[in-house]
Amino acid sequence: MTSYFIRRLLLVIPTFLGITLVVFTITRLVPGGPIERIIAQARQMNMSEGNTSGGSSLQDDSPLSPDQIEELKKFYGFDKPILISYLDWLGKILVLDLGVSTRYYDPVWEIIKDKLPVSAYYGIVTTILTYLVCIPLGVLKAIKHKSFIDSTSSIIVLIGYALPGFIVAIILFVWPAAQWDWFPLGGFISEDFEDLTLAEQIWDVIHHSVLPLIAYMIGGFATMTFLMKNTLMDHLASDYIRTAIAKGLSFRSAVFKHAFRNSLIPLATHFGNNISLFLAGSFLIEKVFNIDGLGLLGFESLVERDYPIVLGVLVITSILGLLGNILSDFCVALVDPRVKFD
């Protein structure tokens, strides 16, 4: 088992190289980038100073001289071939240097580090709450199949699934937060957070996160709940449950002592993926609730062609995703003794 997981960890390396190489190449091939941004900025500056220097510079294609552009290319490493500059970038990654943002001129790692706790909080809480809701609900629905509770919860869960998260976010933002003033309008913590007692701080975080969490999770219930319900129902109809009842077990104990663990196997395969998926966040929900998380950072950096941040976020999320896969395997091995890794 140990050797299997060591092998899996080693396989992370080539996968990681593949992901980053592809994205790195794309950032080089698509138009736009820090140099174009600086050119645009320079042009704007020229325009505002245009009254004094006359119209000649406006007709120029570029406000910067070719030498200046060459210098900029050198500064950002665009003068080298893709592969060489990729290797340069990779070399820095290995010593945990993610580079410097081309927008803020701050180290990328510092920027990401600021957002990480927020994203981790939402990611972990969402995952835990999703499982806490979906597993009991799925069990209840399986046992009470075709009952009133089963049908109503199906309708609710499916409506949640059909609504895009950001629409829910907007609805929650407009009514419970803005109109009725039940919840804060957004943000992760209040401005006077530092002055609060610990209990008040905890309450503050919870109070701020209720609406975003609903928006994050509402679509996630359906898959997990139905997966739980359907696998449990399959197992309830299986021969070994009949054996268990023939042994003298009550139906309830047969469900919880025999069928339940078997039904967790497919859920366990999702566990690692879910946690990394939620961690990466959803920029639209972050945007609505003004949460400063990784999702929003990644999206804005992409729009602004801030490639060091784009790649930095990619490094974090892809490593989490790859480790999440291994975590899933581990969870499966934990619940299913038939799974042996050698």
Binding site: Y240, R242, A244, K247, G248, P337
Partner: peptide
Amino acid sequence: ANEMQHIRGNRISMIFQEPMTALNPV
């Protein structure tokens, strides 16, 4: 139902056709 549970497996037991699936795999 609860008294029937004392009968099953205690006074009357049953074995089934398909031994491959009649035991809990985990």
